[in-house]
Structure formats: C-alpha cells, structure tokens
Design a protein around this nucleic acid. Structure first.
Lengths: 192, 192
DNA sequence: GAATTCTATTATCAAATGATAAAACATTAT
DNA sequence: ATAATGTTTTATCATTTGATAATAGAATTC
C-alpha cells in the first residue's frame, strides 16, 4: 500500500522523493471494513485522509432521520480537508466507507508542519480545496437545472461503475430521489 | 457608509479600533446599481467583498444558457472568499447585485498582508469560510431531502422578506423549480 | 403618461417523481 | 444448507412539478 500512497502523492504534484518519504513516515495506512464510519457529524476529528482504494461517502442525517449522501470519494481521491469540513472543530458531515477501503491518515498538525517547511504541500492543499469547491458548485448548478435522469447520467460520467459498487440507497439520496424512482430510471435508461 | 463598515467589522470580531481603521484605510466603498455584475464566471478577480447594504446573488449558466442562482448574500454578509471561489485564478461563479447595493472592496493581496500582521484577521478569515461551507453543506442536505415547498419555507426562514426584494426568477432557480411552480407554491402557502 | 418591455399569476394538461406494497434477488448469520 | 435479513425491482395509484399559453401587473423608456 505504501507504493500506492507514493503514486498518489506524485499524482498530486508532490514531486520530490524526499517530500513523499516525509509524508509516508508520518502517515499511517488504515484498512477500513465496509460500512465503517471514519468520523461522524458533530464530533471532532483532527486528521486528513487520502483514499487509496475503495469508495467512501459523506452523509448527513435529515430532520426525519434519513441518511442523505452528499458526495462520493472514489479510489485515490483526497477527502475534503479538515478546515473545510469542520465548524468550531466539529465535523459538519459524517464520512463512511461504502466498500472495504484503505486510507492514509495524517494528523492535521503534522500536515501543517509539512506545509510550513515545504512549498509542495502548500500548493497541494490549495489545489485540493479548489477542486473540491469547484466540483461542489458545479453540482449546485446541475442539481438546480437538470432532471433526475440527467443528474444520474452526469453522476455516471463522474463515477463510472459506481452503481455496481455501492448500495443504491446512497446513490438515490445523492440524486435527491427515492430508491424506487432510482430503480425506475435505471430501467428506463437500460431499455433505450 | 464607513460607520456601517466599522459596525460590520466589529460584528466579525475585528475588535481593536486600530485593526478596523487599518481595514477602512485600504478598502474602498462601492455603490452598485441593481443588476450590476461584480465579477463573472471564468474571469479573474483579485478582491474580497463585504456587503454593506442590498442583496447580491451568485449564479452560473446552465448548459442551456439558463441563469441559475446558487446562493444569496443579504446585507452585511461576507462574499465567499477569493480562494474558495476561484480555480486557477478564475471565478467559478458570477456575482451580481439584485438590488442597489453597497460593498466594501479590498484587494486580496492587501487583506493577506493584514492577515500576516494581525491575528484578528486570520481568525476572521477562518470563521467566514467555516460558516460559508457549513451553510453550503446544510443546503446540500435540504436540497436532497425536502420537497420544493419545504425548501421555500427554509429559504424564507434564512432570508425573511427576500421575495419582496429580488426577482422571483432568481428564487425559483435557487429552489430548483420553474418560476411558474414557484408562483403556485406562493399561492398554496398564502391561502393555508 | 402612453407605449413598451419585463415580471408574476392563473389555468390546463402532460410528465416526472413519490408512496406503498409485493415479489425477486443477494447477503449474512445460524 | 436454511433461515433470516437486507436490497433491488416491478406494479399501481397519488402527488408534485413542468410546459405552454393567456392574462394581469410593474417597471422602464420614450
């Protein structure tokens, strides 16, 4: 798994082997069984996560207690950084493994030290947040201007094969429809 | 208007008069006529904005060219900070005045200098982004779990009187429905 | 202030989505 | 293996939302 982490760091423009080595020394690799919660809404959590394999989702509980998925993380994604997913130190959503998964975990404080001494990590942080937020705003527009069917097609473009990996419930709630409607859309799209 | 700015800065926990004075010296007050674009999607913009009076909205163009409002800023809000609304230096949404409005404008570089020398401005920046993102994620859940009618009621709680200030078009697109459906909901809710 | 343009409402019908329940399939535990 | 549990599909009917068009109302321009 350390090779996978190394590859992911390269992909993220941490180009110098020394920087990657530094990161690997202070990060820990964690295997997560399916449906394991990494952190939950309202609790503190002082780590950053790099997803090395598997699928995670973030979710919140609606007023009626229903579990609402607001985003997916597929292999080699970076989980929304700590500063952007907490309010007064408490998580504003929960993060859960939807399949068996492997993550690299690093304490926020440790990564901050890396940032202070190493420009590659500073740039990397800014890039992550830019991509995360631009995707968030993109879906804000999609959500408001497209039908459920169109939203499903767009989701399929972003995460091919997601439907074969995770419970359909999570996809339906991400799309903002019931799982019965979701099943109907799948049927409609398959016969065409 | 400088008193309003001063009040807003106090509200934002810039407590020392010297800090507020510093801010006021480098910020400029701008009056914006209704429907003026402050910046548009895809363009660069190197300023931060504090809304002192009026209503702004952020919007994107959908694939079919339709204008989609993804959020409102009402009096004394802080506009989403530069780093969180740009990708590679380009704006990821447009910002427009929906009514006559007044903003305090400050160059990103100038505010960064303030941050480096003054802890109040650093804390302030972090607080703004936390509130912005937690609201964003809150609406992500609302959007996926509530009917259009419920979404309207929630919007009314957040921005009382908004319907009397801005074009209904912008509210309808924020809610993700047509303006005809919006008008129908208004009628339903008024007769009950 | 009349004319023009833009915005909001109302009505009608069509299409999309939700609610419920039953059946088919998969997974997990015993 | 069997039972038990959870997930996905299918069917039916109800409700919500969209599309279109006509009208009414406001704001803007001349």
């Amino acid at each position: 798994m350390l090779e996978e982490l190394d590859a992911k760091l390269s992909e993220l423009n941490i180009l110098s082997p020394q920087s990657r080595q530094l990161f690997k020394e202070i990060a820990t690799i964690k295997k997560l069984p399916k449906s394991k919660n990494i952190f939950v809404e309202g609790d503190g959590n002082a780590h950053e996560y790099l997803l090395l394999s598997g699928v995670l989702h973030r979710y919140n509980l609606a007023d009626d207690g229903q579990l609402i998925t607001t985003g997916f993380y597929m292999t080699k994604a970076v989980v929304t950084p700590h500063f952007a997913r907490t309010k007064n130190g408490k998580s504003i959503f929960s993060l859960q493994a939807l399949t068996n998964a492997v993550v690299a975990e690093i304490a926020v404080a440790d990564l901050n030290l890396l940032r202070q001494t190493n420009n590659e990590f500073r740039v990397f942080g800014q890039k992550i947040i830019e991509e995360e937020l631009s995707k968030l705003f993109y879906f804000e527009t999609v959500y408001r201007s497209c039908s459920a069917k169109e939203r499903l097609l767009i989701l399929r473009n972003h995460f091919p094969n997601l439907e074969n990996l995770v419970p359909h419930n999570s996809i339906a709630s991400f799309l903002g429809i019931t799982n019965v409607s979701f099943s109907r859309l799948r049927h409609e799209l398959s016969v065409k």
